[in-house]
Design a protein around this nucleic acid. Structure first.
Lengths: 149, 149
DNA sequence: TGCAAATATATGTAGGTACATTTAATTTAC
DNA sequence: GTAAATTAAATGTACCTACATATATTTGCA
């Protein structure tokens, strides 16, 4: 659906403003269509994001700072998210021996299993709802990268 | 900056997953660069969004339902946002005569003035930070519309 | 008409987020 | 070697959001 119909706005100041609203709207739309999966596994989108970063590091630990740096939404409170995941036994936290200010965070087997299943379902929903082919997704990536450059 | 560097993720399952993460990240990036302006005017992004919808309707009133339908992030609590705006004298609320369940919401002159100034600054920031030309923004819009189709 | 269903909005509650501040450990400069 | 500055993480606070539920009004239909 065109962005004009989606939010019932007939006019935009220019193509740039139309594109910016379209990015914000599409992001919100993507978040919405994934939400059902996250809810099924009783995690938030930010928690999923942290689990994926930990998977990328596994079996090496990640620190809270590393999580903040790599999260899609940087402004989130990584330390409290880690505590949520720990209380569900999805990660373990331990004092980093090299720098005792830091905390080493590592996925547990429970965390790995949950993430594997959850990711499978998220990808399936993406495949079903994203109507772009490979070349178009490449071009979309190029444009978004250039926009922020 | 390429999305890989931005979130320090080296590999994606495919171009679709790369594009989806890129949309979410770019949306968060755009929100962040606008935030300073909203903070200056002491409004939230959602409040700005509602003010813009009311501007599009002006001088006709909008109902709460209409606001929900047209907001970028549909899941928000429009009724409480309207109350926030009313307490700052940016809008007025009155019982809709045709259907007393509904509430007519209209911008005040204070609201119009704030929105005019705020929008000018938001557009200026967009112009400064969005590195795409007109044709590229058009193509970006086409791709995002198709993605959601 | 009268009563159930639908609709529009408001609100209670739990949890999430932003920002500033605090605490603790490490590094730097002298 | 020590005090000041920096860094990593945690936490207090206020606000925001999501979801379920409540309240009031209108609609539809027997």
């Amino acid at each position: 659906m065109e962005i004009e119909q989606a939010i019932h706005q007939k006019e935009f100041a220019n193509e740039r403003e139309r594109a910016i609203v379209n990015i914000l709207y599409t992001s919100s739309w993507l978040t919405y269509i994934q939400m059902g999966v996250f809810k099924k596994y009783d995690i938030s989108m930010q928690q999923y994001n942290v689990l994926r970063i930990l998977k990328g590091q596994y079996p090496k630990p990640a620190t809270v700072n590393m999580l903040i740096e790599r999260m899609i939404d940087k402004s989130s409170n990584a330390s409290r998210i880690v505590e949520k995941l720990r209380s569900k036994d999805l990660v373990v936290r331990s004092e980093c021996p090299k720098d005792r200010r830091q905390v080493d965070v590592v996925l547990t087997q429970t965390g790995i299993d949950l993430l594997t299943n959850c990711t499978k379902e998220v990808y399936a929903i993406h495949k079903k709802t994203d109507k772009l082919d490979d070349a178009e997704n490449k071009e979309l990536n190029r444009l978004l990268n250039k926009l922020r450059s």
